[in-house]
């Protein structure tokens, strides 16, 4: 479904439309949360909390704002704030713990061969941990751009930063990941 169709649905019937929003965005948003938290348990909490906040906010939205709403960018922004608030309020060591416990993450088996599948899963687990250990500004920029697949302009809007800052954060974040992910090239 095209993004405009989804926002039109929301304007027509918020409850039914929102069910479709969750259905459409759940996996991408969970992946984003996984990248930010580093483990699936926190990621699920963050993703769920994000949708609950989004739903409450939408209830108070005037229809004309609904029409111009960019759902993917808007949900990302909420998720980023949810994580920031969690880290600030009760989980200071979140990023440091990350990576060790990224069990139980399902990745679709797109590539042939059992070894490649196992490698992909292990890679995601390790990478989720590495991403979660990046400095916050780089982590958010990399995830919104690469995982949530927002444009630089959209990331800038969601994070309230300039596009130039976002570009630089994405660039430096990816560089840091490449440096830390030497193990990945060893097995390629």
């Amino acid at each position: 479904m095209a993004p405009e169709e989804l926002t039109q649905w929301l304007a027509r019937d918020l409850d039914a439309g929102f069910e479709e929003v969750v259905r459409t965005h759940q996996h991408r948003l969970f992946a984003l949360a996984l990248g930010m938290c580093g483990n699936p348990h926190d990621a699920e909490e963050v993703a769920q909390d994000t949708f609950v906040r989004a739903y409450r906010a939408l209830k108070r939205f005037p229809p004309e704002r609904l029409e111009e709403l960019r759902l993917a960018a808007w949900l990302s922004r909420i998720a980023v704030n949810v994580v920031r608030n969690r880290v600030r309020s009760r989980r200071p060591a979140l990023a440091l713990l990350a990576g060790a416990e990224a069990e139980g993450v399902e990745v679709p088996e797109r590539r042939a061969g059992p070894e490649r599948t196992v490698l992909a899963r292990a890679g995601v687990r390790r990478l989720a941990g590495l991403v979660a250990a990046l400095p916050r500004a780089q982590r958010e920029a990399v995830l919104l751009h690469s995982v949530q697949q927002l444009t630089y302009a959209e990331v800038a809007g969601a994070l309230n930063l300039s596009e130039a800052t976002v570009r630089s954060n994405v660039h430096r974040g990816l560089q840091a990941l490449r440096a830390r992910a030497g193990w990945l090239s060893e097995v390629s």
């Binding site: 759940q26 969970f30 679709p108 989720a128 690469s146 990945l184 090239s185």
Partner: peptide
Amino acid sequence: NMVEEALHELSAARAPDGFLERTL
């Protein structure tokens, strides 16, 4: 490269079973 590929894999992670129902 491998980092982009792994990021791509990360973006293909699936929300856990029952996530939709629990969230709704």
